Amino acid sequence: MFFELKENSLFVADSHYNEKNKQFLIFLEKLKSKEIECKQLILMGDMFDFISSESKYFVKRNQKLLDIINELSNDIDILYFEGNHDYNMQPLFKNVKVIKREKQPLLLNYKNKKIAICHGDIFTPKSYDIYCKVIRNHYLLIFLNMLDIKNFISKKIYYALIKKIICFDFKEFETLALKRSRNFDADIIVEGHFHQGKQYTFGNKRYINIPSLCCSQEYSILKDEQFIKIKLNK
C-alpha cells in the first residue's frame, strides 16, 4: 500500500455504472489503451450503481469492468474507496487496495501536506451508521443472495436505480462543505458522494469535491497542488 500521493494521480468519483451510464467503462478502456495514462488511480466510490462481492447477479453484470480494473492494477497503484453503492469489494480484486467505510478518511501525504480522502458518507447520524453496518453484513448479504431466486430481488434493485435521478445542483453545498471540513484534521479534504465538483478554501483548509463522472463526464488530476477537472472524451 502507498501512503503518498503522486503527482498526476487521477481521481474518479460516482460513475454509477449501469447500462445507461457507461462513462466508467469508457474511462477504463482509455486507461487500458493508454489514451489516458497514470501511475496512481483513486476510485472514490459509487463507481457502480450497485455491487457487492456477495451479489452474484451484480458481479456478473459488472464482470467486464472488474476484469479491466484487475488488469490495470498490475501496472497502476489503485485505491478503491467504498461508497454507499459499492461495498465488500476486496474479494473481487487482486492488487487493488480497498478502503472500507469504517477506515475512511484515509490520510495521505503530498508535498508536505496532509490529505484526507473519503467517499463522503461519513460523519453522519448514528442511525445511518447502524444502517451501513447492517446492510454491509457479509452473512446477511449471502442469505439475501440465496433468496434471490431467478434474480428477482437484484433485478428490482437494478431497474429502480436506473430510474433514480442523481444529478442535481446543491445550492447550499458551500455551507455543507464548511460544516464537513470541520470534522477533518487535514490540509486538504477530498470527497466524492455529493456530485457537485466544487472546491472551497476555509481558512487553512481546502475542500475538494471530485465531480461525478456520470453527471458531468469529468474526472480530476492532481497537478502542482491543484485538482484539475478533465472532460472525458467519448
Score class of each variant (00 low, 15 high):
Leu72Gly: 08
Cys38Lys: 11
Lys223Gln: 07
Asp86Leu: 07
Phe143Asn: 02
Lys113Asp: 01
Ile166Val: 15
Val190Met: 01
Lys34Asn: 15
Phe24Gln: 09
Phe3Cys: 12
Val59Asn: 09
Asn84Cys: 08
Tyr158Glu: 15
Leu213Ser: 06
Met1Lys: 09
Leu31Gly: 06
Lys22Asp: 03
Glu35Asn: 15
Gln104Phe: 01
Ile153Trp: 03
Lys39Ile: 04
His119Trp: 04
Thr201Val: 13
Asp75Leu: 10
Phe168Lys: 14
Cys132Pro: 00
Ser55Asp: 15
Glu174Trp: 01
Met44Gln: 07
Leu28Arg: 09
Ser212Glu: 01
His85Ser: 11
Ile76Val: 14
Cys215Ala: 06
Tyr80Ile: 05
Ile142Thr: 13
His193Glu: 05
Asn95Arg: 13
Leu222Ile: 02
Asn62Glu: 10
Pro211Gln: 05
Asp77Pro: 01
Lys34Gly: 07
Ile122Pro: 02
Ser53Trp: 07
Ser73Val: 05
Phe194His: 12
Glu102His: 11
Asn209Gly: 03
Ile135Lys: 15
Phe93Asn: 04
Ile26Val: 15
Val12Ser: 08
Met44Asp: 09
Lys100Met: 08
Ser154Ala: 15
Ile135Asn: 04
Ser216Ile: 02
Ser9Tyr: 05
Glu4Cys: 12
Lys163Ser: 14
Lys6Ala: 06
His195Arg: 11
His193Ser: 04
Leu141Lys: 12
Asn84Thr: 08
Leu141Met: 10
Asp49Glu: 13
Lys156Glu: 15
Glu37Leu: 14
Ser127Trp: 11
Ala116Asp: 00
Asp67Val: 13
Thr124Lys: 12
Leu178Arg: 13
Leu106Ser: 00
Gln63Asp: 11
Met1Asp: 09
Ile165Thr: 11
Asn8Arg: 14
Leu107Met: 10
Phe93Ser: 04
Leu161Thr: 04
Lys94Ile: 11
Lys223Asn: 12
Glu7Cys: 02
Asn151Gly: 00
Leu92Gln: 13
Asn95Thr: 05
Glu4Thr: 14
Met146His: 14
Arg101Met: 10
Ile122Lys: 07
Ile76His: 04
Pro91Ser: 12
Leu41Asp: 11
Ile153Arg: 05
Ile230Glu: 15
Gly83Glu: 08
Asp224Phe: 03
Arg61Pro: 00
Phe123Cys: 06
Phe48His: 06
Leu31Met: 13
Ile135Thr: 09
Ile208Trp: 05
Ile188Thr: 09
Lys179Leu: 08
Phe58Arg: 08
Tyr17Gln: 12
Asp14Gln: 07
Leu72Lys: 11
Leu79Gln: 01
Cys38Glu: 07
Asp49Pro: 01
Glu218Lys: 12
Lys171Ala: 06
Lys164Ser: 14
Tyr57Pro: 05
Arg206Cys: 00
Ile142Asp: 14
Ile51Pro: 10
His195Ile: 12
Tyr87Cys: 07
Tyr131Glu: 13
Tyr159Trp: 13
Lys56Val: 12
Leu92Asp: 11
Ile165Phe: 02
Lys34Tyr: 09
Gly45Pro: 05
Ile130Ala: 11
Phe170Gly: 00
Ile162Thr: 03
His119Met: 06
